[in-house]
């Protein structure tokens, strides 16, 4: 398969600066990163190290300042706005720390939202697909609830259902449990893990918590916009060893 030869995500000297009134804040300082299909990657690092910034670029929510971002071997820099929109609609999904659900809207409608913009899924299938995704995250009995009638964990699971309803290749989750207590956090992590276990999907997860990160096979540490370490565990023992090395 072609996907075996071409990595899903590849960055070359990826840089990002924010500009405000002539002032440049360099956040990412030339990242080289390769992520293959069906990987489960955790990104860790201190606050302000650029994790979210990286995720937004990889998730097609923002543009890098310089460097290359290849998605399935295709350079993204030259893509038109419509091409980028098409990738967001079909290939990638994002789960935000702040949920970002539509206010005053039901769970079902929130989950159906991406399907409105999906180029190939027919309108007649939207409801079924959305219900299926909602059941996948264990919210079947809450489908008609308004999002403000849900707990934080339920809201985040709604956001996860919204992320997986289009059956994307990659799901980006930026501290999905950051606003949740440990019990809700565990439920959300379970949902994410099951998604990966079901196969065929790449998951990239930002987290602060060591035990959350342990769900992933590969952990990338960022520090001040550089990759500090990038370790893949093959066995549990190795993982611990690697982890200790990076400390």
């Amino acid at each position: 398969m072609a996907s075996k030869q071409v990595p899903l995500i590849e960055t070359v000297d990826l840089r990002k600066s924010y500009f405000s009134e002539e002032l440049e804040t360099a956040v990412l300082h030339g990242l080289n990163l390769t992520i293959n299909e069906e990987e489960f990657v955790s990104i860790m690092g201190p606050s302000g190290s650029g994790k979210s910034t990286l995720m937004h670029i990889l998730g097609f929510l923002d543009q890098p300042t310089s460097g290359k971002y290849l998605f399935r071997g295709e350079a993204t820099r030259t893509m038109t706005d419509d091409e980028l929109a098409a990738i967001r609609a079909t290939r990638v999904s994002f789960v935000f720390q702040a949920f970002n659900l539509l206010p005053r809207t039901t769970v079902l409608e929130n989950v159906m939202l991406p399907l409105l913009y999906h180029p190939t899924i027919p309108a007649s299938e939207r409801r079924d697909r959305a219900m299926h995704a909602i059941e996948t995250v264990g919210l079947g009995d809450r489908a008609t609830y308004y999002t403000n009638q849900l707990s934080g964990g339920q809201q985040q699971r709604t956001a996860i259902a919204r992320a997986l309803v289009t059956e994307p290749d990659v799901i980006f989750a930026d501290e999905p449990t950051g606003n949740l207590d440990s019990k809700s956090g565990n439920q959300v992590m379970e949902a994410i893990q099951e998604l990966h276990a079901a196969g065929g999907r790449t998951i990239i997860l930002v987290t602060h918590e060591q035990n959350t990160a342990q769900h992933a096979k590969r952990i990338i540490h960022l520090r001040d916009g550089h990759i500090d370490s990038d370790t893949t565990k093959f066995k549990r023992l190795n993982a611990k060893k690697n982890h200790n090395l990076t400390k």
Binding site: A85, A86, A89, Y117, T166
Partner: peptide, 13 residues
């Protein structure tokens, strides 16, 4: 913000 969200899930301009 709503527009940002719609774009994030695939809306074209």
């Amino acid at each position: 913000r709503e527009i940002g969200l719609r774009k994030a899930v695939g809306a074209k301009r």
